[in-house]
Amino acid sequence: MAEGHSYESMQREYMKVFGALMGLSVLTVLAAMLPLHGPIGITLGLLIAAVKTLMVMYIFMHLKFDHPYLRIMVIVPLFLLCIMIFAFKVLGI
């Protein structure tokens, strides 16, 4: 358990993230039904996935409560991944 967090408060956080993840999963399906062609639709879908990722990592995976080292460790590859997608999809390299 994260330091200084009670069982009840952690459980509440988990339930909130769970509800948000469910809602965003439905939202990502609805977003795919919008007549957004190509890059805009893809960007929207990836943005929703990115928000879900942050919630899972910060709450479920305790990054919010853990040592900052762990945050740095995961931000570097994620940053490289974003550069790759940007280079390929936006710049078209």
């Binding site: 990502t28 399906v29 977003a31 795919a32 039904m33 919008l34 879908g45 929703i48 996935a49 990722t53």
Partner: peptide
């Protein structure tokens, strides 16, 4: 969370309303 939209939604034009 990434595989789901990338494979099943974002490249599926038949999902678009109409």
């Amino acid at each position: 969370i990434f595989l789901f939209p990338v494979f099943y939604l974002l490249y599926n034009p038949s999902l678009v309303w109409g």
